[in-house]
Simulated scan of single mutants.
Amino acid sequence: MSPLPAATVPALVRTRLRAAVRRPSRLTPDEVRDRALVLRLLSLLLQYPDAELATARPAVAAAVRALTPSPAATELAAFTDWFAEREPQSLERHYVEMFDLRRKSSLYLTYYLHGDTRRRGMALLTLAQRYRAAGWETADGELPDHLPVVLEFAALSGPGPGEAPLRQHRRGLELIHRALTQADSPYRHLLAALLTLLPPPTEADLKAVAELAAAGPPNEDVGLDPYAGGLFAPPSAFVPPEQAPPTLMPPLTPPPDGPR
């Protein structure tokens, strides 16, 4: 079948289609900068809300307010409005409940793709090798698939290869967002912000997410060498590893010319 002539498609529709499929490689320098800042803020806010992060909340909120208006910025603002008002101990309890005690919203991305199988150990090793090839090392105790680590790598390495691990694990990110939404957790806004930066899900993606939500990741009674150490139990008793220490960011200050 021959495609319809372009003239038969309303100009507004063509414009919106082009905007929807715009590739990160075609972003302007300002857009790349804004995108990197959004990713770094997401990396910071998805870390355990210890005393240092709780103290930095006013600076983080100011950085979010200074973002260029976008769907991601709107979602970030919705989260920081909640984050700024909660007592620190309440934030800590909520974080542990959402990310440490629930299998469907764990922040370790390869779990959703490979479960507790040999393939997951290889996926962790491959991801660590990708970081090293880019001249980037994770801190001791950090698994390379921990979402804040993946986000920081994406922010520092750029929209192309830097964001490749996020695109690869899009289905897992979709499942985390779904689980947080079902739990009515404000952290859903952070996952929603991240998903606005990625290509829209395909029908196959949505079907896979639904199947993953129903059946869970694959299981295999083996270790995860070289990243095992007995830290991972079968899915029926899944307990993620202890949270890695927070990855610190330089002070978040608006650009010299003020908010845009």
Rank of each mutant, 00 (worst) to 15 (best):
A6D: 14
A7S: 15
P10R: 10
A11F: 05
L12Q: 14
T15L: 15
R18T: 15
A19N: 13
A20M: 10
V21L: 14
V21A: 10
P29D: 03
E31Q: 14
E31N: 02
V32P: 00
V32Y: 01
V32M: 10
R33K: 13
D34K: 01
R35N: 09
R35K: 02
A36L: 03
L39H: 05
L41G: 02
L45F: 04
L46D: 03
Y48W: 05
A51G: 09
A51E: 15
E52P: 00
E52Q: 14
L53W: 00
L53T: 11
T55W: 00
V60A: 04
V60D: 00
A62W: 00
T74P: 07
A77V: 02
A78W: 01
T80L: 07
D81H: 10
D81N: 08
D81S: 11
F83L: 01
A84I: 06
R86A: 14
R86N: 11
P88E: 02
P88T: 06
S90E: 15
E92I: 06
E92Q: 15
V96Y: 03
E97T: 08
R102N: 14
R102F: 00
R103I: 15
Y112H: 07
D116T: 14
D116N: 12
T117V: 09
G121T: 07
M122Q: 14
A123Q: 07
L127Y: 06
Q129N: 12
R130G: 08
A133S: 12
G135Q: 10
A139E: 13
D140L: 10
H146E: 11
H146N: 13
F153E: 15
S157F: 00
P159M: 06
P161N: 08
P161A: 13
P161C: 04
G162H: 05
R167L: 10
Q168K: 10
H169N: 12
D184W: 05
S185W: 01
P186R: 04
L190Y: 01
A192P: 11
L194T: 06
L195Q: 10
L195R: 08
P201K: 06
T202Y: 07
T202D: 12
E203S: 14
L206V: 12
K207T: 15
V209Y: 13
A210Y: 06
A210E: 09
P217L: 03
P217C: 07
P218W: 07
P218E: 10
E220L: 05
G223I: 08
L224D: 12
L224H: 09
P226T: 08
A228M: 09
G229P: 00
P235V: 10
A237H: 09
V239Y: 00
E242H: 12
P245F: 02
T247R: 12
M249G: 00
P251V: 09
L252E: 12
L252K: 04
T253G: 03
P254D: 05
D257M: 00
